[in-house]
């Protein structure tokens, strides 16, 4: 194919034509980037309700408040559904996993 072409047109013309216009062969026009977010946690499952922390706790699932169900981290770095932890500390102010006194380090948002 390349040979047939070069018989009709001198190769240098072709090269000149290919290089002179506007630089790269391919230029970016649009990029649709896809990412997944997840809670930055050590353990995927909430130890209180046994549901994955990426899924809302059972109560929020049935109340259709999935988007509002956030995660809470303690100073011990353990994490739970915030809803679950709020109920838990009414009974026992210790982390269910390590038994340290529960202090909130941060909330997910």
């Amino acid at each position: 194919m390349a040979d047939g072409q070069s018989l009709e047109e001198p190769p240098k013309v072709k090269k000149a034509k290919g290089k002179t216009p506007t630089g790269p062969l391919f230029t970016l026009k649009k990029w649709n980037a896809v990412a997944m977010w997840s809670w930055d946690v050590e353990c995927d499952t909430c130890a209180i309700c046994r549901v994955q922390v990426m899924d809302a706790c059972l109560r929020c699932q049935s109340d259709k408040k999935q988007e509002e169900c956030i995660v809470v981290w303690g100073e011990c770095n353990h994490s739970f559904h915030n809803c679950c932890m709020q109920l838990w500390i009414k009974q026992n102010n210790r982390c269910p996993l390590c038994q340290q006194e529960w202090t909130v380090q941060r909330f997910g948002s």
């Binding site: 970016l28 026009k29 649009k30 977010w37």
Partner: peptide, 16 residues
């Protein structure tokens, strides 16, 4: 806060 991102380039796309 507290979220991590994972890029899924197998799903991303674009036009050139």
């Amino acid at each position: 806060n507290g979220r991590k991102l994972t890029w899924h380039h197998i799903m991303s796309n674009g036009s050139i």
